[in-house]
Amino acid sequence: MKIFIKNIPGQSAVTFAIMTMCYTIITLAKGDTQMPVIRLPELFLLSVFGGIWMEFAFGTCVFKQITDVKRVFIFIIPFSVITFICAVIFRWITELKVISTYIRFVGIFIGCGILSIILFEIEHRIRGREYTKKLREYQNGGNSNEQ
């Protein structure tokens, strides 16, 4: 539980960064060059939930022995529902009786998911270089935490 709580700020920060990027891209795509300041606390609120749920689904505290596909589903389905509810409450979505609203939401959600995967991949490659550099140091008998 301690590790679970400790990891939430990091997960929330990642979620907030990705959601802000996605929201900025969508806003620019719609032709708007400005974003209301109130949007940031709204995104932050959603990110806190996203962070908790991300740690719940992808961390090792709750689920230890499940496949990545199951973890993705545990995260994606409730998070898409919460995002939709927040989008309605925060009035990002107003036309609820039009079917194209729902299609657009799903499209945007999938687009954001793909963008997240690309950003994670870039981050993993950068961290991978750092890991490999430390590994080389270890292999050459250099710095490590070995006692």
């Binding site: 400790k6 430390k134 140091e137 270890y138 490590s144 935490n145």
Partner: peptide, 11 residues
């Protein structure tokens, strides 16, 4: 990570 001096004990 801990062995390589990369921080470590965060899961």
């Amino acid at each position: 990570k801990e062995k390589l001096g990369l921080g470590g004990r965060r899961s």
